[in-house]
């Protein structure tokens, strides 16, 4: 099966810090900690290029590179393509119906003040792919 690998930037992006202002596709502004599953779904519906895909966490393991990193393996979309992502352990993913989750929620809360739960195998995360333009 096809497998691709992505490495996240070594530092956390500023928009995950509690209080960051996020603009939805319809122009509405929300704080990052207030985002709901529907906000992502509705924004993707408006978008002409992006669509939401379900990415199920299949495996989480420590990185060989550094103890600060984890490798998360996802099964993406209806074709269940395998994608591995190497991220900082505090990097938050948005889980459908649940909210922000990371491999180390204590660190996420400590560094970003972002309320966060533990990312676990079986969680279904929101991810993006390109819409098929025909």
């Amino acid at each position: 099966s096809p497998q691709s690998s992505t490495v996240a930037p070594p530092s956390l992006p500023p928009y995950f810090i509690k209080g960051s202002i996020i603009q939805l596709a319809d122009g509405e502004l929300k704080r990052v900690e207030d985002l709901k599953t529907e906000d992502f779904i509705q924004s993707a519906e408006i978008s002409s290029e992006l669509k939401i895909d379900s990415s199920t966490v299949e495996r989480i393991e420590g990185s060989h590179t550094s103890p600060n990193f984890a490798v998360v393996q996802f099964s993406v979309g209806e074709h269940r393509a395998q994608v591995s992502v190497e991220v900082l352990v505090e990097y938050p993913f948005f889980v459908f119906g649940q909210g922000w989750s990371s491999c180390c929620p204590d660190r996420t809360t400590q560094l970003l003040e972002l309320p966060c739960t533990k990312l676990s195998v079986g969680d279904v995360c929101i991810s993006l792919t390109l819409k098929n333009l025909r």
């Binding site: 096809p2 497998q3 691709s4 992505t6 996240a8 992006p13 500023p14 928009y15 995950f16 960051s20 202002i21 996020i22 603009q23 939805l24 596709a25 502004l29 990052v32 985002l35 906000d39 992502f40 924004s43 978008s47 992006l50 939401i52 895909d53 990415s55 996802f74 993406v76 979309g77 074709h79 393509a81 994608v83 992502v85 993913f93 948005f94 995360c125 929101i126 991810s127 993006l128 792919t129 390109l130």
Partner: peptide, 25 residues
């Protein structure tokens, strides 16, 4: 008069990982 500092606004899609699976058509 002191103008309020502009607060950065981030687009919603920057918060979502872009996981594009390899597709075979």
């Amino acid at each position: 008069n002191v103008e309020p500092r502009s607060v950065p606004v981030f687009p919603w899609h920057s918060l979502v990982p872009f996981l594009a699976p390899t597709q075979s058509d």
